[in-house]
Each structure stands twice: as structure tokens, then as C-alpha cells.
Nucleic acid binder design. Structure first.
Lengths: 145, 145
DNA sequence: CCAATACTTAAACCTGACTTTATCTTAAAA
DNA sequence: TTTTAAGATAAAGTCAGGTTTAAGTATTGG
């Protein structure tokens, strides 16, 4: 059993954040003793899951829904799995997008490297896809899909 | 030469967003005719660059700095290249983080798939790393670094 | 010539995830 | 017992990146 201050240190989270999470319903059914929050094993577990879900970019209101399902036991395993699968899809989609963005920026870096070396953009302006180095052409094409 | 409304359609951006970008200084030196914004080739070019930089997650105030450098000609090629290189590092770091998050969530998906199949978490609770399928163990270990 | 449409501004509002502030209560240490 | 630290609350503030609103001005088509 821990106080909010102890949990704050354990998880390197401000006390205000923990209170905010509680206010948002991320610790359903948390015990209180004369008004003071009691963090037990269940809440520590919950917090680990919250940290995980936050990293995936999940919103507080969805995390809240997930934590409430956790309260309800085995009947909600499928719901939890489905939500995680959906979040996995979202993260995979974001990864794919990032990969494309990376190619776009790789091209731009190369472009300004050339411009800096040439002192102007004349050569770059008259350049076609075929004039670019293989790798840059690939980045350009992928980045501009 | 285009009006704000024409650009809004071309780029699928609300007029309010274009005005906001202008207010934030993303179109330095844009022309006006009796108070009305005139979008020329330079602004269209700028907007393409803005869209690109936004995709990388660059903040408006940094994009503003970049666009001002673009105004200043060849003397700022190095600055622009350096800013893009820095942004490339940031995107690469984010990709690496996402990849780890993906492994974490892959493990969680597998966990609830098992829980749903078993109807409880008993087997999972008594499971060690060696009991997990190769691929899941990899995801677990990478996801919990 | 006049209505309709598109443009202008400043300022308020919105969302998400917190943080800060002000005031009050409880618990632990001296 | 009395500080003092740590707990509590509600409400307001913050930040980014816009969006909405209100009220006025300019341009275009019939």
C-alpha cells in the first residue's frame, strides 16, 4: 500500500498528474482512507498499463474505458484484445507514414547539401529524376507518394 | 496569382488555417492588393514546404524560422540543411521509439488473445519467458527495454 | 446599382493533457 | 500539543494549433 507521494517517486510522475488520472477515472474503485488515496498492487498494475497505453498514443478517455474493462474480469478479455489490436493497427499505420516522411526529409537534406555546395540552386532546378543518385531518387519517389 | 479561397481548394486547407499560417509569419513578404492576400508562385512553393515540414512534426515557430531563411537566399542554405538534418534525427528517434512501442503492444495483444482463449489469466501468470513463443518473447524483451 | 459572394480583422473559443493556485484537512514528527 | 509536511479539492491557467464569431470591406455577376 502506497501514498500518492510514494507512487509519484516510483513512477517519476508529478503528484498532480496522478490526481488528474484519478479524476479522469483511470483508477476505478481505488480505496480511500479518510479521504486519502491508497495505491495498492492493483493501482500499481494499472499505472504500468497506463504508461504502456500512453506510449502508443492512446487518449485518456480510451485508457479509461480499458481500465474499466480490467475491473470487470474475464468477461472483457475480447474487448481488451480488440482495443489493443486496433491500437496496434494505428501504430503500424503511423510507422508507415513516418517511414515515408523520413524519405521525404532525406531528399530535402540532400537537396540543401547540394545547394550549399553549389552556392545556388541552378543545377538542382535543371535536374531530372535520372540525374539523382539512386538512393536519393528512391527517397524522393517514396517521399512524394 | 491566386486568392486565399483558390489556395484553400488546391491544398484542401481551410481558409482560416491559411490566415493563421500567415499571422504566424509562415509567408514572409506576401503581397497584398487593397488589403487582400495575393498568393504567388513563391507562396505556393512555401506552402508545399510547410506541408512537408508539418508532416515531420516540426513546430510552427521553427517552420517560421525556416521560411524566413528561404527569403534570405543562398546565404542560409547551410542553416536550412542543418535544421533539416536535426529534424531527420528527430524523426529517426521517433521511429525507433515507435518500433519499440509496437513490440510492446504486440506482446499485449498476444497476452489478451491467450487470456480470451483460456478464459482466465492463470496460465499466463505462471508463464516464464521460456514458455513464450519465440516471436512473442522477442517482442516482450524489446518492448520492455 | 445592388445583391451575393469572398475577402478582411480582432478576439474569443476549442481540445487534450496537464499544471498551478488558493484554500482546507489529515497525519507524522518534535 | 503544536508545528509542519503531505494529503485533499475546485477552479483557473497553459500550450499548440487551429476554428469560430462578429462586424466590416471589396469584388463580381445580373
Amino acid at each position: 500500500m502506497y501514498t500518492i507521494g510514494q507512487i509519484s517517486k516510483q513512477f517519476h510522475l508529478p503528484v498532480s498528474t496522478l490526481r488528474y488520472y484519478d479524476k479522469e477515472g483511470l483508477f476505478p474503485g481505488m480505496e480511500r482512507r479518510s479521504g486519502i488515496r491508497v495505491f495498492g498492487e492493483k493501482e500499481v498494475e494499472a499505472l504500468r498499463m497506463i504508461e504502456c497505453l500512453k506510449k502508443t498514443g492512446m487518449e485518456i478517455r480510451d485508457i479509461k474505458e480499458f481500465m474499466h474493462w480490467c475491473q470487470q474480469g474475464p468477461a472483457t478479455y475480447e474487448k481488451r484484445r480488440d482495443m489493443l489490436l486496433e491500437q496496434k493497427q494505428a501504430v503500424e499505420a503511423e510507422m508507415a507514414r513516418m517511414s515515408q516522411v523520413l524519405d521525404m526529409i532525406r531528399y530535402k537534406c540532400w537537396y540543401y547539401e547540394q545547394a550549399a555546395a553549389d552556392g545556388n540552386e541552378d543545377r538542382l532546378r535543371s535536374m531530372t529524376l535520372m540525374d539523382m543518385p539512386e538512393e536519393i531518387r528512391r527517397a524522393f519517389e517514396n517521399g512524394h507518394k
